[in-house]
Amino acid sequence: MKDIIVSLMLWAGAAFTLLGALGTLRMPDLYTRLQASTKAGTLGVTCIMVAAAIHFMELAVAVRALLVVAFLFLTAPVAAHIIARAAHYIRVPLWERNVIDELGDTRRKPLSPSSPPEPGVPGHGPGSTRG
């Protein structure tokens, strides 16, 4: 029974990971690729880690495996956010059929610091999020 559960979790993890890799391969621009790789890849490895935790049936191993899961859940969104923001700053092009770009006003302005920020959009000038 335990082996069957472990097998099913492994299949689920493999399926999610494969979908994430497929999305990374086939999606049209960086941001959608980031979406696929972060979410599906994290969920796939989570399923595999849970399978390992169930398989070994030890508290120490389960804690380690779930620590990997917790760490992935903490770091994957942060890493994806940082990469997406940096990519937006260096003007990685969006998909041509993209509908809305809420950070678009920071993209189209020149990057020289002498240009004043748009009135009405405080804190959205180039370099203002530098901190």
Binding site: G13, V45, A76
Partner: peptide, 30 residues
Amino acid sequence: TLPDHVVALDLIGTIVAGIVAIHAIRTAQP
């Protein structure tokens, strides 16, 4: 673009973490 390479490397590392876990199950070495 450069962030594409970063995203791909990140995904590869995540997949390798999963492969290592499966190897732990196969060899019974936690």
